[in-house]
Amino acid sequence: MAMPQTEGRPMLLGRLDRFETLIAATAAVIGLCGLFFAGHGFYIKAKAQLAQVLLARSFAAELAGEGPSRPWPWADFTTAARISAPRIGHSAIVLAGANGETLAFGPAWLATTPQPGDEGTAVIAAHRDTHFSWLKDVRPGDRIDVERADGRTMSFVAGQGRVSRWDENGIDIAAHGKHLALATCWPFDSTERGPLRYILDARLVEPEKAAAGLPAS
């Protein structure tokens, strides 16, 4: 009884029997896998945030009149606009063309839709867990600003949000008037991918009205 105590604290991996070795090995594998998964998850988030810094730089250069530039040499897209929600203090650089790659780096303007502020409905989509995590906080009546690559800033006023299927969303890109639809996945805090989308419709505030309304708000 006294002997093991004099040997001090038991070593974790010293003289394990077969069963224990198996458990230890399994634990190690599971632990590593877990580390990998968590790392991958955090990597996605970090990439999304870091990319925005580079994109902001690229967009500033574009505004300065250097033409559409690639944010980094191997990027397969260009910046299109900056979207911001002043009340809740969020903004992000919007990329042109929505695909898996652009969406990983920022909100994406669907290239098949008109430019924000042009006749029709422009659609901007982003991931619910990164760039559009704030979309749920936008209330009806909030202002949403879109600064386009040509330097013009368009102000939209948010309407009611709604939920619909991704392929039956009722967005009419050739609609009369100037609209903006912001889309992200729904439900917001689900970890599953699904067919449902949260769509926030907004319509353009005509420039003169916006100018008049700005000091008041």
Partner: peptide
């Protein structure tokens, strides 16, 4: 218009 997948894993 169709909306892209907007949830990351």
């Amino acid at each position: 218009v169709n909306l892209p997948q907007t949830a990351t894993p």
